[in-house]
Design a protein around this nucleic acid. Structure first.
Lengths: 159, 159
DNA sequence: ATCAACAATTGACATCATCAACTGTAGTTG
DNA sequence: CAACTACAGTTGATGATGTCAATTGTTGAT
């Protein structure tokens, strides 16, 4: 008899709650590597993108203010997990690229996070997880629901 | 062509991102009422629970440290949206109950939040939303997957 | 009467979010 | 070229949040 509260049916609340659960889990898994959830996100986004990524882009993808990226990259750079170099094409941009050490750490981090996350998805089927991913992507990245299909239709750019 | 980053397929990341999107939306919707997402959550949980709720319970439901509830209730109490009274049965507990004014504000808040949220779910069917709710509940409240089924088993009152 | 367990509270401290201001670079216009 | 605008990154201030240890008051049991 604790259900029935409108709040516990509210998607925003459930998202926040579920997100918190996963974040804690990931946080614990990453601690031994000296990473936090945020720095791991940066590392992961930079990984497998040999050309380097601008900080602006990182900020946009992570949904953060660009100013917050600075400290994250500072830390990763200080530990030689990423490099930060001005873009030759446009010296305003700084291209963040991963180092070999960073790549290794990133791999370990992925494994740890995945292992830690698995426990939370036990009751859910793989198809349901895919479905969940799909829906969350639509909510998290609304304007780019063009990812997998007709990327054309919208003349403008929504919002 | 920006997809394919493992991170953007990671459920933890997607949850955090989607949660952030909804939270901002709700935050803007609630600002005119002088509420934040957190205080709205408290208000909503207290509403429709005439008997009053202990702060411990609020903390557990919201996934917060009990110490954080104090300030939230302080604020709501100061504005006469809730009352805080010692439980006659066990004077350690304080029962938080809603006031008439609180009930009214809560209703407005719900409408505003719902209106603001709707925009984020446009592309998703009602059944998918139900499904989403269901899965999120499983992730957010793992031990209580009894919600929809044998909610009886525990003689007590959950938790 | 003493003790352990618990709810609420306080305070300290680190993290994070939000914004405004500043620097350096690029592109445009006169 | 000079002046202007626009942008990426950076810094700093300020408030909100998360986390934890310690305290107070209350309960229940010994």
């Amino acid at each position: 008899m604790h259900a029935n509260h409108p709040l516990t049916e509210d998607l925003g609340f459930l998202l926040s709650r579920a997100s918190g659960v996963l974040a804690r889990s990931a946080s614990e898994a990453l601690a031994p590597l000296g990473l936090r959830v945020r720095s791991y996100s940066v590392l992961d986004l930079v990984d497998e993108d040999g050309d380097g990524v601008t900080q602006r882009r990182l900020a946009a993808t992570m949904g953060l203010d660009p100013s917050q990226i600075v400290a994250l990259v500072d830390d990763l750079e200080k530990r030689d997990l990423v490099t930060r170099a001005p873009d030759p094409t446009d010296r305003r941009n700084k291209l963040i690229a991963i180092t070999e050490a960073g790549h290794q750490v990133c791999r370990q981090a992925r494994e740890r996070v995945a292992a830690a996350s698995d426990g939370h998805f036990e009751g859910v089927s793989p198809q349901d997880l895919d479905h969940l991913r799909y829906m969350l992507r639509r909510i998290a990245f609304p304007e780019s629901d063009l990812d997998d299909r007709e990327a054309v239709a919208l003349g403008g750019h929504g919002n």
